[in-house]
Computed example of a mutant assay.
Amino acid sequence: MTRFQSPFVRVCWYLSLAILAVPFVFPFLWMLSGAVKSQTEIFAPTLTLLPETWHWENYAEVFSYQPFARQYFNSLYIACVVTAGTLFISSLAGYALARIRFAGSGLLLLLLISALMMPEEVTIIPNFFLMKWLGLMNTHMPLILLPMFGSQGVMATFLMRQYFTALPPELEEAARMDGLSRFGIFWKVALPLSRPALAAVGIITFLFSWNLFLEPLVFLSDIELFTLPLALSNFTDAYGLPLWHLQMAATSLAVVPILVVYIAAQRQIVESFALSGVKG
């Protein structure tokens, strides 16, 4: 009897999941629909996903309204630099906290974890005065340095530390008997084995940097230096009202790298959150 009921149960599960997915999928479909509608049609009394007239010129207007291509490049290269720097620093720091015993290592780890409890809104003011004192205002350096050495860097270090802690110590002992130094063990043994953790940290860091909004809002004033999250809020008319058709067209272009990352590495994204629970 169970064999005959299993297809029915499976269909019920699929239908339930499809219904639960509607609130998450519908805003995305509405964004794609609004990207090819006119401003007036978006607020039409009749709610329709398919536009009456397809305004593909909205995408061209996005690039003519402001330097959107430059802003797109700004977000892309900043996210790549932050990801590469965070991977380098967090892998070294995570390995040191996991494998090197030194005085105060436990206290240092506790201080790093406590930094995750402090919201960015609390640290943005001292960071503002620090960057102003360093002469880095209206540059991309705060958007690169703060994520690498801030809360995102701390989380990356913690994830890498948890992964290195779970590695069998016998691997290091065998490498040490072969004459490898501490850095040689890290570079030739531990780091190649940590590719899943590196992939997870890289994905999370890239998404964090790509979606960063508060820091660009505080540190940037030149429109040529804007990143995408800040540029999306700049599609307004002369009265400061949003141009929704342009905002939706620009947003649909901005989510392309995020979709590519999620589709290509969704397994690593899920596993990355499990890494923080590894015993160590």
Rank of each mutant, 00 (worst) to 15 (best):
residue 49 L to H: 04
residue 199 A to W: 00
residue 171 L to G: 09
residue 143 L to I: 00
residue 84 A to I: 14
residue 9 V to A: 14
residue 72 Y to H: 01
residue 83 T to R: 12
residue 202 G to K: 01
residue 187 W to S: 09
residue 157 T to Q: 13
residue 275 L to C: 09
residue 26 F to D: 03
residue 162 Q to Y: 12
residue 62 V to W: 06
residue 24 F to H: 09
residue 189 V to E: 06
residue 95 Y to A: 05
residue 38 S to T: 06
residue 274 A to V: 12
residue 157 T to F: 08
residue 192 P to C: 08
residue 140 H to V: 08
residue 118 M to R: 07
residue 251 T to P: 02
residue 167 L to I: 12
residue 189 V to Q: 07
residue 151 S to F: 00
residue 117 M to N: 11
residue 244 W to A: 02
residue 173 E to P: 02
residue 243 L to F: 08
residue 141 M to Y: 15
residue 254 A to H: 12
residue 83 T to L: 08
residue 67 P to Y: 04
residue 113 I to D: 06
residue 106 G to E: 11
residue 186 F to D: 07
residue 38 S to D: 02
residue 32 L to H: 10
residue 185 I to V: 15
residue 118 M to Q: 10
residue 219 F to K: 01
residue 176 R to Y: 12
residue 70 R to P: 00
residue 50 L to E: 11
residue 166 A to K: 11
residue 76 L to G: 13
residue 45 P to G: 01
residue 77 Y to R: 07
residue 112 L to R: 01
residue 248 M to Q: 12
residue 157 T to D: 11
residue 18 A to R: 05
residue 207 L to H: 01
residue 15 L to A: 15
residue 256 V to E: 00
residue 101 R to L: 00
residue 271 E to A: 13
residue 106 G to S: 10
residue 224 E to F: 00
residue 161 R to Y: 00
residue 132 K to F: 06
residue 98 A to L: 02
residue 53 T to P: 03
residue 17 L to G: 04
residue 50 L to Q: 13
residue 152 Q to F: 10
